[in-house]
């Protein structure tokens, strides 16, 4: 019987192999040099190749193996938290310099709370207000970090 853990090992193996091959291919464009005087491409080429082989071994073993170990983690991908949290971080990167720390922090908290349904909106607002106040106090006034407080108008 092939369990879910096997399928995941197969995917993991392929991921490693793909990454290894990509690295090896890119580093073959760099100067390889010799064992005595290694160029920039020497070690990445070797490691990339090694990784590709290990990936194949993992994938191969997953195909052959009969008894899968119990999966510790649920294999289901939870799209909502994944997308919401990623979007939160990307949003921060895009707006921090333009919108300033006050609006950014508030927006980031609100977007991050979209990660799951059923959170109370008033809780989100209180959190946004509180965290914004703390961040402004600690990072803007306290540590003097380099970002604007408010959006620059005009």
């Amino acid at each position: 019987m092939r369990g879910i853990s096997d399928k995941r090992d197969f995917v993991a193996g392929l991921m490693f192999t793909t990454f290894g091959l990509a690295v090896a291919w890119i580093s073959s464009g760099y100067e390889i040099g010799s064992a005595r005087a290694m160029g920039a491409g020497y070690l990445p080429l070797v490691l990339g190749g090694l990784l590709a082989v290990i990936g194949l071994v993992i994938a191969g073993a997953a195909l052959r193996q009969g008894t899968p170990s119990l999966p510790r983690v649920s294999p289901r991908i939870d799209w909502q938290p994944l997308l919401a949290i990623t979007a939160t971080v990307v949003l921060f990167a895009l707006v921090i310099q333009v919108a300033g720390v006050v609006l950014t922090t508030a927006a980031v908290v609100i977007v991050s709370r979209l990660a799951r349904r059923g959170y109370a909106w008033w809780e989100t607002l209180i959190l946004a207000a509180a965290l914004t106040a703390v961040c402004v106090a600690v990072f803007y006034y306290g540590l003097g970090l380099q970002f604007p407080l408010w959006p620059a108008f005009g």
Partner: peptide, 8 residues
């Protein structure tokens, strides 16, 4: 949300 903000 605080963890995400602090990381950013």
């Amino acid at each position: 949300p605080a963890i995400v903000v602090l990381c950013c």
